[in-house]
Design a protein around this nucleic acid. Structure first.
Lengths: 210, 210
DNA sequence: CTTCGCATGTAAGAAGTTACATGATTGT
DNA sequence: ACAATCATGTAACTTCTTACATGCGAAG
């Protein structure tokens, strides 16, 4: 239930409504490391209120009244307790690009062009993110404390390393295909045969039908 | 439904059973970027078979017979099609440690020690993973083709960057707390006040009860 | 002869997403 | 008056995990 804690965390930044929380996850710093939709936020807020970790009050000021949530003593405590728990190691990495690369040699061995396109897209998106972070640190609007800054440095460091890797990888893919590093059972050759056989069989069935 | 594709991908490596797939996700290379439990694998295999993307045959050889799955022509095609789709950008990063750091200043501002412990744990685990990858590349058992090697390089590059960041961060945390980078609305001070008030209120209610 | 690892599954439920329904306020 | 944005919620559905149930084969 780490998402309850993410909600508590956002409320700890400032008393806020369900809508505010959604916005924070979309545009704010919390959005870099977590995300939530309305369908999750509102039921969870109700639940947290029932548990006594947050309480609600109305805004009196101008504009449409909205429900603001604030942490109770127990809520601050629950948040601090969660922070104290050792965090889990982030494996498996959930990255579609990496997952695809792993199976590239098996299903798309000859199409190195498309993979290069994927990598160029990734580079563009990462550069954009770096840019976004850079302007954000100097926009004079968002609160960024020492700890928030540490997270931003982490992301920057990883993205920088990623960019170096992307360039090296594209250069390699533009050259000739490399032999396997290790393949004691000759799987690579077997894959080619199995794939060709399955595709040929499908073809022949198609033509039979016609 | 990227998990269907992950299953297709593993089967593309070699014809395998549900159990084999689970093992591959636990110890194999696919486990670095995805993970699945039996409860997901078996129903999905059944579904993929109904869709005609995989087909099953029994092992005849010694030992307990098991169901082996193999890709059909349509299965190879579906896998290749998925690879061709541009991958999604992996934001938000789902990393418990980063999420905790973001809220550290708000709920646990004075306890820099515990955060340092979290970071040391992370360093130890990352070093272990680097080690695991290093031995794996030279164990002479697993198949690692050019593309698999690219993924391993990526992970190595990110982990190296992470380790540098961890050391710098620990050094910083051992020093005195830094002021916020940016805090136009004075939120940091407000947080201290709100937190202290909520905790004090809880305390006074506790003592009243006693 | 029994325990451990291999192997296949099911059922219940948690967790989270999407789409829908509703309505107020603000700016044009 | 109209659209865009702010704002709160519900319902149905998908996805995925955990725990349970079952049984074979091999090794000690």
């Amino acid at each position: 239930m780490s998402l309850d804690h993410a909600i508590l965390g956002v409320i700890s930044l400032y008393p806020c409504s369900g809508y505010d929380i959604k916005v924070e996850f979309e545009n704010g710093g919390a959005g870099l490391v977590s995300s939530l939709s309305f369908g999750t936020i509102y039921p969870r807020l109700k639940h947290l209120e029932n548990t006594g970790l947050i309480e609600t009050y109305q805004t009196k000021t101008s504009g449409r009244p909205k429900k603001l949530y604030e942490l109770t003593g127990a809520g601050w405590q629950a948040l601090a307790d969660w922070l104290t728990q050792p965090p889990e190691y982030p494996i498996p990495i959930h990255d579609d690009l990496l997952l695809k690369i792993i199976f590239w040699g098996t299903a798309n061995p000859d199409d190195r062009e498309t993979l290069i396109e994927h990598l160029q897209l990734r580079r563009a998106e990462s550069l954009e993110l770096l840019d976004y972070i850079a302007t954000w640190v100097e926009n004079g609007v968002s609160m960024i404390d020492e700890y928030g800054m540490l997270v931003l440095s982490y992301i920057r460091a990883c993205l920088d390393a990623e960019l170096v890797w992307i360039d090296a990888t594209i250069a390699q893919l533009e050259g000739p295909p490399q032999p396997p590093i290790q393949d004691p059972q000759g799987l690579v050759e077997q894959q080619r045969v199995r794939r060709a056989a399955a595709l040929a069989k499908m073809q022949s069935e198609d033509t039979k039908q016609a």
